[in-house]
Structures are given as structure tokens and as C-alpha cells.
Design a protein around this nucleic acid. Structure first.
Lengths: 230, 230
DNA sequence: AAGCTGCATTTTGCATTCAGTTTGGGGTAG
DNA sequence: CTACCCCAAACTGAATGCAAAATGCAGCTT
């Protein structure tokens, strides 16, 4: 019986737990969700688990087929293309709005995160770098002061988190380029140039997409991943 | 006992039924959701109803407070601002992509819908006009050939559907202006001018937002609605 | 008379139970 | 040997039951 964070109601905690399991690959894409097994692993009954699965299905993290159980949603290249297209759109708009609305405090906090991230870059501490990287992107979205935009972003970004976990290493050249992009992003945010920031973020996302898609391709057994359609 | 569309599984049908009830105001914003009452009205048990409520809560259509039941989410002016900001973003990007990807068939279908809508406009048939109007917007999104973008749009647009129902009448001048905007939108789509279409759609959405917010304001008892922040 | 306390009722959250469907296997006919 | 069919076991979907928490109200205190 595997313990899990018990903050509030059971189904809510389960939701978080299942999300983690999916993101970390414990529940592999395409896999059937073993209802009964998970119930005894978590030490709960089927009711809250099924409630959580309904929510995950609404988020397209699992596919729910009537009378035939649930499957973990797969992430093929086309899915990733579509997801990143939407993520880029939301981040770009978030950047534009953030330039208009960001407070001095929020800007200072982002700058702080940026420099801490830079330190991790210099020390080649990839996990810490990734964490701050993602935190900066979320912070910009948050600075856009639009909770709907943020929750929309979280919903879509959550669907590629699994793929992010696969891309847990990075070519040094690309890493340096990404760091430079972040430099430009920060400078443009400070300059409050919304349109330019939007474009920079969209470009940055495209590059991120290529890395992740390459990583997913290798993870899927392709040793020489050079497929990346437009 | 109120009947409801019974197509597939019970909770899925319930979901659709509850959405309709919310959109048409049968379940008023801020209202507590009487679990037991709805169960006997639909003639079902609490389990599928609760599953449907969990999904609605994930979509932010209802607010779920632990041990204190569910409330229908309210839609204040700020919410509408935020929602329309995101809707405009998604529609604009959808328009840009549609210009790149739309097929001749899809374009012809949109043109057909447009002219039928124009006929309803000439005859001042508002409900039919609204239906086709919405269908055109969805068709453009669909032409963008990005299912993630579409489902994202549906999710956010679904949250303002209630407000749309309140705006069931329209000033003749504004109606004519909206019709002209649609003319321009169609022409720009035909011309495959993605960036321009994006801007037109965003502008069109801003106007729609103003109408709906004014209607909601009057519905909330404000006889002279002149609040519309940027 | 207003506010607080304690109890009864209602409601929520979860477990358990029941009914209907799918799935897998063994047997049989071709 | 292969294909089909039938049956049983497993699983899914929904209903019911039960414990805990919240709500409402009466009576009491100040």
C-alpha cells in the first residue's frame, strides 16, 4: 500500500498522486489503468479513484472508453506539435500582457529566479535549471494577471510534463542557446516590449519543442532522431 | 423526474444535461447544487451526479468546497474580461493557422454558413443568426487543424455560454457592424491573410465582449450599463 | 433582547454491493 | 488444423449503505 500526500479530500489527493504517476512514467502512455490494483495500492475504494479518473479524462490525460476501462493517453509527435502550438500561443499572449501589467515586485522576483537559474547553468546543474526555468515561465504567465490564461496554460502544459521528464539531458550548445534566449526574454520583459517578448517566447517554445520531440523520439527507440516536421 | 438525453454512459449524459441547465440559467450562478434534489429529478443515484460535478469543477463551471457542497460558479465582469482575453487569443491564433491550413471544402462550408447567416441577418432572425455565428467561429477554429486548440477553445468558450444566453437581443447598429465584421473576416480568410485575420477576430471578440458585458450588467439590475474597463 | 452552546437533522464523502458488459478460453464442427 | 461458438471469470457502471462533518434550531446565559 503506497502512501500519498493527504491534504484534503481523498479524490483531490488521488488526482495529484495520479498526475505524478503519469508524469513520472509510472503509468506508461497507452497502458490500461488497473483500477483494482491502484485501489489496493492506495488503500482506497474504487469510488474516489473513478472520480479522479473522470477528471483526468476531462483533461485528456487519460482516455476513457465506455465499458472498456481507461488508458493513459499517448503522446505522439502530432500531439506534441499541437500542444506546443497552443502553449506557444498562450505564453506569447502572457508575455504581451505581462509587459503591460507586471508589478515591480514580480519583475524583481523573476530577475532573481533568472540569476539563480544562470548560476545553475554555469554549474551545469540541469534539474535545478529546469525547475527554475519552468518557474520563470509560470511567473511570466502569472504576471499577465489573468487567472483564466494561467489555468488554461497549466492545463495544456501539464499534458507535456511527461515528455519533459524524458528530456532530462540537453546538448551543451542548445543549453547555451536556451540560456541566451532567456537573457533576451528577461531584457525584453524589463523593457516592457510586449510584442517582441511574445515573439521571443514563441520562438523559445519552438526550440523547446524540438528538443523534447527529439528526446521522445530517442526514448521511443529511434537512435538517430532527425524527424521534426514543420 | 426530468428526462435528459441518454446517449451513452449515465455520467456523460448527466454532464451534458447539467451544462445545459447551467447555460440556460436553470442553475443560477452562486446557487448551491442540491445533490439529492437533482438525483431524484433525474431519477438517478448520487454516484454519477458526483462524478459529473467533479468534471464540471475541473472546468471551473462549478466550485466544489470540501464537505460543503458545490456552488455554480459566478461570472463577474472581471471573470468575463479574463475569459474573453483568452478566447480572443485562441481565436486569433486559430485564424492565423486556419489561413495556412484550411481546405477548399472547409472554406466553402464556411462561406455557405456565412451567407445563410447573412440571410438571417436580413430577416432579423436573431437566434438563427447567433447559432450560425457561433458555428462559423468554431469552423474557423476547426480549420486550424489543431485539436488541442479547439478543445482549449471549447473549454473556455463554454464558460461564457451562460452570459451569451443573457445577451439575446442586440442593438440594430451593433448588429450591422457585427455583420460587416464578419464580411471582413470571411474576405480575409479567403485571402489567406493570417495576421490580419487574427487581428480582425480579436477585435470582433472585443466588441462581442462589450455587448455581453453590457447585457450581463443590465441583467444584474444596472439600468444604465456604462462600465466597461479596458 | 442578543449572542452563545449543545443537540438533532441534513448533507457530504467514501465503502460496499449489485447488475450488465466485455473478454478470454475451451470445446466443437468443418 | 482452423474457425466459430458458447460459457465463465473479470471488469466496468451505477446504486445503496454507513460514518463523519456541517447546518439549523432550541434553549440557555449574559
Amino acid at each position: 500500500m503506497i502512501p500519498f500526500p493527504k491534504g484534503g479530500t481523498l479524490h483531490a489527493d488521488l488526482l495529484a498522486g495520479l498526475r505524478n504517476m503519469i508524469n513520472q512514467g509510472e503509468l506508461a502512455p497507452g497502458m490500461r489503468v488497473p483500477e483494482r490494483l491502484l485501489c489496493e495500492r492506495f488503500g482506497i475504494s474504487r469510488t474516489p479513484l473513478r472520480e479522479a479518473l473522470k477528471v483526468l479524462a476531462a483533461e485528456d490525460l487519460v482516455e476513457l472508453r465506455p465499458n472498456r476501462g481507461a488508458r493513459i493517453a499517448t503522446l505522439d509527435n502530432q500531439n506534441l506539435q499541437h500542444l506546443f502550438e497552443v502553449i506557444a500561443t498562450l505564453e506569447a499572449e502572457g508575455g504581451r500582457l505581462a509587459c503591460k501589467r507586471i508589478t515591480a515586485d514580480a519583475l524583481a522576483e523573476i530577475q532573481g529566479m533568472h540569476y539563480r537559474m544562470y548560476a545553475h547553468f554555469l554549474r551545469r546543474e540541469l534539474p535545478e535549471y529546469f525547475t527554475l526555468n519552468q518557474a520563470i515561465h509560470v511567473a511570466i504567465l502569472r504576471a499577465a494577471a489573468n487567472p483564466v490564461l494561467l489555468s488554461c496554460y497549466n492545463g495544456v502544459a501539464g499534458r507535456v510534463t511527461r515528455a519533459r521528464y524524458m528530456a532530462n539531458r540537453m546538448h551543451p550548445d542548445r543549453w547555451e542557446a536556451a540560456m541566451k534566449e532567456h537573457e533576451a526574454i528577461l531584457a525584453t520583459l524589463v523593457a516592457r516590449d510586449g510584442d517582441r517578448l511574445g515573439h521571443l517566447l514563441a520562438q523559445h517554445l519552438e526550440n523547446k519543442r524540438d528538443i523534447i520531440m527529439a528526446a521522445v523520439a530517442t526514448a521511443n527507440g529511434d537512435p538517430d532522431p532527425e524527424q521534426q516536421a514543420s
